[in-house]
Design a protein around this nucleic acid. Structure first.
Length: 905
DNA sequence: CACGGCACGTA
DNA sequence: CGTACGTGCCGTGA
């Protein structure tokens, strides 16, 4: 092959993209808006490799138009049994075609033909024109095209490792020449195409026969002579074999609108390629392309990683922190390791990076001078810092006794959440891959607790020190990654107009949340112990009674055993189905009780009730820290709507509806040095947001006028005076109003209210007759989201809904309900976060000692310092009600007491 | 020991 | 066939 020889590269677009789709994990390749890009990435990667390694002068890519082709006409079952093409794959084909456009590579399709036929046609034209031809395809049918000038590049693993099939290689692998490969394939069959071969005949036997009889024709002529089971099998399946032979023949004279000269590759459109890679968030690939493609080819293997920027890492030399920090001109990125949980933590190591320089140290080993320098810098709000998981950092800083860190300009974990709030993991390593196309360096072994390193230790890779050096470098590069990540994210946030949301709300609120966690809430262990014993006694009693009634012991807590007893032994009517049987949930048990009056059911219900409470209390007791307080963790990157969530323990689902449940709240108490707890919450915040967003005058008026919103709404729906609204009316309207924001259907409403679907439908009709804009709005939100792909809250928080255009009705409808709820629930979350920030600032400004302990979505629990009750209430009310300006007032109500329960209002 | 399924607590 | 969460227990399978 000489350099002057023209070379045509032909690629089977579908088959290579499909390989890539299954070779690369979809969850690691998706844009912020949910578009999966693994096939695009793999395809582009393969393409770049081939362009570079093979230096083709001409290039073309062929695609299938649909599954229909002349082959399905002859044999309708052709390619049956492949299952639905995954939606996530289909959506990537147009993107690959855009990519090819940007690359200046022609792509072809032809109705009624497959990509392979296009390739066969072009390969034969290419041969005639005297070009060498390379075919990249994952379809074995292409083997028949191989000859002295046509080489097949067949994927071995993924799409970047390709085997070179020359005639010799084909013979070596299959024992037949490429011209006879069709014969072999016809005998063996092709499962992927639903072309069954001769049972009992594999490639070995087929090759043997073809060698003996020269070809399939020769074999068929002598079919009667073949002995043994295989021979009989062949005779029994001759028709199928001949059909396979007809179908696996690629068409070499498809009429195409482009000929070889049109396929000359003149290069890519740099601007367009960059734009597309940007949109696809292919940072590493973009760099690879820019770095490599214009050059002459040097080799095939290109690692899928971006260039790592130069970084000079060093362990701190005692006394050197001051000089290092003084030399910093930009934002300093921080990476840290250690143990962090429940509002506290301890650092093992800290690494700082800025401008290609990184510094590493162990906080516990700082000398007095460096420690001073460190805490001063940390507390200086004029020294901008970038952190990944700032909340854990704040816990550690607090536990270390450092002053509160200030100037945290960005948290890369939170930024990633804003960009893609449904992502599962925001681990730094995942984000490094996702946003920078880079692996995070990992230290080989943990560093043992030991001394600081000197420069010489870093310089000399001798002995045990090398592990420690790796550790330092890994930590330093993590810090550098935080810095790079923050820059990329800042740009993205800016593009999406979310820079303010991040900088003015989401980042600052981290500190407020951290302090709530650090503070915790005091628990009355004695009270918890008492009520747990009470619940335990009741649970035991209910269990014993249940055993008596059944006549033998069984596990009352096992839904499986319960099903056997209720439905098999006692022959009770079947309840709603679950995946594995019939439900035994409280609602179903209650209905069974009404139907059968069986005494077992009462005991089961009672058991469930008290057992749950017992378990909640036991969990709470186990989480009381030595300081007598419970320190929950509020997760800021978990709820896709923008809410916080609470865990270890979850203090956002402490019972409140039943009296026994409220006894648990009585165990959360005011601590010494404070006079009471204050609970303060928004009234119907989601409905108010709905009223405001919809602009529905009826609803807005009702909120402005009505003390009791459900009564006011009911009065309008039923066309009566508010005073004439019955409890039943009010109950129905309340359920309807709340259900609206969740996408409640008439069926669901009927179930909840115990009325017929028709009645529920009527209620809904009457409701919207008076509050029509609400329906319009909800409808509009979904339609808008279908167009743009996302919904937005009042403060610009986005959530993406790729399933809104799914062909799967169930998935689509789930997405529709979530989409109509997201701006409402999310805006409420925005408002509460704004209020928390305002409260925090006002408390500092006013120098109050009272503090916020908990947030329960629309409620704050505060601890009131002596004599501050009035000022605190005024201040929090002020901040909460002015956290947003809506078309309706944001009403809050507050209560005080010595426990969470007593502070209810 | 990990995991899915169920059940159930909150806004 | 109502959104958003977290947790404990059971039963199964490694």
């Amino acid at each position: 092959m000489t350099a002057s020889q023209s070379r045509l590269l032909l690629i089977d677009g579908h088959s290579m993209a499909f390989r890539a789709f299954f070779a690369l994990p979809a969850e690691k390749f998706a844009t912020d808006d949910g578009q999966v890009t693994n096939a695009v990435y793999g395809f582009a990667s393969m393409l770049i490799n081939l362009l570079k390694a093979e230096e083709p002068t001409h290039v073309a890519v062929a695609f299938d138009v649909s599954r229909q082709s002349f082959r399905t006409e002859e044999y309708p079952a052709y390619k049956d049994g492949r299952g639905e093409t995954p939606e996530d794959f289909k959506s990537q084909i147009p993107i690959i075609q855009q990519l090819l456009d940007a690359f200046g590579i022609p792509w072809l399709t032809k109705q009624s033909y497959e990509a392979d036929d296009i390739i066969a046609t072009l390969a034969s034209q290419s041969e005639a024109a005297g070009l060498d031809t390379l075919i990249s395809s994952g379809d074995r049918d292409a083997i028949q095209l191989v000859n002295d000038t046509v080489t097949l590049l067949y994927p071995v693993k993924g799409v970047t490792e390709l085997a070179r099939y020359t005639p010799a290689a084909v013979e070596e692998k299959y024992g037949v020449t490429p011209e006879r490969y069709r014969d072999l394939a016809a005998l063996v069959g092709e499962k992927a195409d639903n072309l069954p071969g001769v049972p009992g005949v594999g490639p070995k036997t087929a090759a043997k026969w073809i060698a003996k009889y020269g070809s399939l024709d020769g074999l068929v002529a002598k079919a009667d002579e073949i002995t043994g089971k295989a021979g009989q099998s062949l005779r029994d399946n001759l028709d199928g074999v001949l059909r396979n032979y007809r179908l696996n023949c690629l068409v070499k004279d498809v009429e195409l609108d482009r000929a070889i000269p049109d396929l000359e590759w003149r290069g890519w459109d740099v601007t367009e390629t960059n734009r597309l890679f940007d949109a696809l968030q292919f940072r590493a690939l973009g760099e690879r392309l820019n770095a490599n493609l214009p050059e002459k080819a040097v080799g095939a293997a290109v690692a899928p990683v971006a260039e790592t920027p130069q970084l000079e890492s060093a362990a701190l030399v005692p006394g050197g922190l001051d000089v290092w920090l003084a030399a910093r001109e930009g934002d300093v990125a921080i990476a840290f390791t250690g143990q962090f949980a429940s509002g506290a933590g301890s650092f093992d190591t800290i690494a700082l990076a800025e401008g290609g320089q990184a510094l590493w140290f162990e906080p516990s080993q700082l000398d007095a001078e460096d420690e001073r320098t460190w805490v001063d810098w940390l507390a200086d709000s004029a020294k901008p810092k970038l952190v990944h998981d700032a909340k854990a950092f704040l816990w550690g800083a607090d536990a270390a006794g450092w002053p509160e860190p200030a100037g945290i300009k960005a948290d890369t974990m939170i930024a990633a959440y804003l960009l893609k709030p449904e992502q599962r993991s925001y681990a730094l390593g995942d984000l490094a891959m996702q946003y920078l196309g880079r692996e995070l360096e990992a230290a080989m072994t943990p560093v043992d607790d030991g001394a600081l390193f000197s420069d010489s230790a870093l310089a000399g890779p001798d002995g045990d020190m090398s592990d420690d050096i790796a550790r330092v470098q890994a930590d330093c590069s993590a810090a550098a990654v935080v810095g790079e990540l923050a820059a990329v994210q800042a740009e993205r946030l800016e593009q999406r107009h979310q820079a303010r949301l991040a900088a003015e709300l989401e980042f600052p609120v981290i500190g407020v949340v951290a302090r709530m966690e650090i503070t915790g809430i005091a628990a009355d262990e004695g009270h918890f112990a008492d009520i747990e014993a009470g619940f335990a006694a009741q649970s035991k009693e209910a269990t014993e009674r249940a055993h008596e009634i059944v006549g033998r012991p069984f596990n009352v807590g096992s839904p499986k055993q319960l099903q056997e007893i209720l439905f098999d032994e006692l022959k009770m009517p079947k309840t709603k189905r679950t995946k594995t049987g019939y439900t035994t949930n409280a609602e179903a048990l209650q209905q069974l009780l009404v139907k059968t009056g069986h005494p077992l059911l009462e005991q089961l219900l009672r058991f469930r009730d008290v057992e749950k409470l017992k378990q909640i209390v036991a969990t709470l007791r186990a989480t009381i820290q030595p300081d007598g307080r419970i320190h929950t963790t509020f997760h800021q990157t978990v709820a896709a709507t923008g809410r916080l969530s609470s865990a270890d323990p979850n203090l956002q689902n402490i019972p409140v509806r039943s009296e026994a449940g409220r006894a648990i709240r009585a165990g959360f108490v005011v601590s010494e040095g404070f006079e009471s707890l204050m609970t303060i919450d928004y009234s119907q915040i989601e409905m108010r947001i709905m009223a405001s967003l919809t602009g529905d005058e009826g609803l807005i008026d009702a909120f402005i006028a009505g003390e009791d919103i459900h009564r006011a709404v009911a009065a309008k729906v039923f066309s009566v005076e508010p005073a004439a609204v019955t409890d039943e009316h009010r109950r129905k309207i309340k359920a309807m109003s709340y259900g609206l924001a969740y996408g409640l259907s008439p069926y669901g409403l009927s179930q909840q209210l115990g009325i017929s679907t028709q009645e529920a439908q009527q209620l809904s009709d009457d409701y919207f007759a008076r509050f029509g804009k609400v329906r319009d709005y909800l409808h509009r939100v979904v339609e808008e989201a279908r167009k743009t792909g996302y919904t937005e809250t009042i403060m610009g928080r986005r959530r993406y809904f790729p399933d809104l255009t799914s062909d799967n009705r169930q998935l689509r409808e789930i997405a529709e309900r979530a989409a109509l709820n997201a701006p409402i629930q999310g805006s409420a979350a925005d408002i509460m976060k704004t209020a928390m920030l305002g409260v925090d600032r006002a408390l500092r400004r006013e120098k109050l000692d009272s503090r916020v302990l908990l947030q329960v979505h629309d409620e704050l629990v505060c601890e009131v310092a002596p004599g501050e009750a009035e000022r605190l209430e005024a201040l929090v009310r002020e901040q909460m009600s002015n956290a947003a300006t809506l078309a309706v007032p944001l009403t809050v109500s507050a209560g005080f007491g010595e426990s969470w329960e007593a502070a209810a209002h």
